[in-house]
Amino acid sequence: MYPSKFGYEAPRSLDELSSLLNRYGDDAKILAGGQSLVPMMKLRFAAPEVLVDINGIPGLDYHREDPDGTLRVGALCRHVTLERSALLAAKHPLMAAAAPLIADPMVRSRGTMVGSICHSDPQGDWASVLLALGGHMVALGPRGRRTIAAGHFSLGPFQNALQPDEIALEAVIPAPTGQRSGTYLKLERRVGDFATAGVAMALETSDGRVVRAGIALTGVGPSNIAATEAAQALVGKPLSEESIEQAAQLAAAAAQPRGDHRGSAAFKRHVVATFIRRGLARGEAVAA
């Protein structure tokens, strides 16, 4: 309930932020929404030397589409903004489905999508969403900007690919090549709980065929898992009971769950397959 001591910096610009990160290196920890970091500090599971609070940097709270349809979510865009977003409701079914399932209303007021992905908790939902959509993160550091594909961003539980002097500036979802459908299904023991198992499903269809598919799994491995083979089983053909079943089996096989008090490994695999069947059956309806 009482964090350890730390230094505190609140830069007002990206330049100022850069020089702070340069100065503190590994000792610095970025504070955005703080809804994962502050609880860990309260329990003293985390004790950063210096906290660099980016909330005072203007212009990072956006989520917007480029003219080509690319979606960009800024580092300070809160979950609640995405939950209420008309843009997502109209054009991004998977994101719109996932946003209200993050934690609880008060956490959503403060927490950010980008921060959640950076946190690299294998039970985090947004990383699966980004994986399924084939998105990437944009990092900003002294050497400028670079993009990191969603599949390369998380290196394991609570470890990401950012350098100590980099911050994640935005999450980017590429423009669709067909009609988007998809959803996020999450088995939670109670509302607001972390996923016992979660499945993000993103489809793009054109002329009745799936032209792009992404499936990613939450809470069933050391990181969020891109079920690439499962997704691939859907591409190039219309959605069918057979292809869905194939995807369900492949996704269950891709999961690497551990049994614990939330359920056995077999149960979690079974839930993954079930959610693929259910989620894609909905997608089938959308595509039809």
Binding site: Y8, G34, V38, P39, A103, D104, M106, V107, S109, R110
Partner: peptide, 21 residues
């Protein structure tokens, strides 16, 4: 950050004041 007994409005939005410095 589960119970919400510390909920206040922060610039009008509800937040958990135990999870903000």
């Amino acid at each position: 950050t589960n119970c919400g007994a510390c909920t206040v409005l922060f610039d009008g939005e509800p937040i958990k004041s135990c999870t903000m410095l």
